[in-house]
Amino acid sequence: MTFSQATEKKLQDIWSRYPEGRKRSAVIPMLMYAQDEVGQVTPEMIAEVARRCEVTPLQVEEVVGYYSMLNKERMGKHHVQICTNIACLLTGGEELWQHAVKRLGIGHKQVTADGLISLEEVECAGACSWAPCVVDGYEYHHHVTIEKLDQLLDSIQKKVQ
């Protein structure tokens, strides 16, 4: 399996951080960066990471199943994560979630028909003092209101047009 130059460089950089004989340590970060490029975790990716990290594909598979950010299904180009954990719940996170579900017509870990946006109701994103919070990919948006959420979704949808 081949990756873009930038990703390949990143993967090698990650691989080099761990002592000889401990390359298994690179499995999770490698999967994260490889997934960022491919858009999901594929069987080929599992085999490739297993080969590079000197473990069996099953050992990688076990990891993929465990971590909630590793997805075997393809998520949208914009993976919009809405936190509804306590601090966000107290400040309107659930309303944001309901709004997004209604507006996009998709639910938890579902993707819009055009593949542009996917939604995920996430656990505490670490933005409690600036709640409620929405994360687009890796980009944090704080003190989000329904208007701000609409603006965000508008801008995502406009970008493609």
Partner: peptide
């Protein structure tokens, strides 16, 4: 000293 990324697990 290096960073190491998690992947979503409390």
């Amino acid at each position: 000293l290096y960073t190491h990324s998690g992947a979503g697990a409390y």
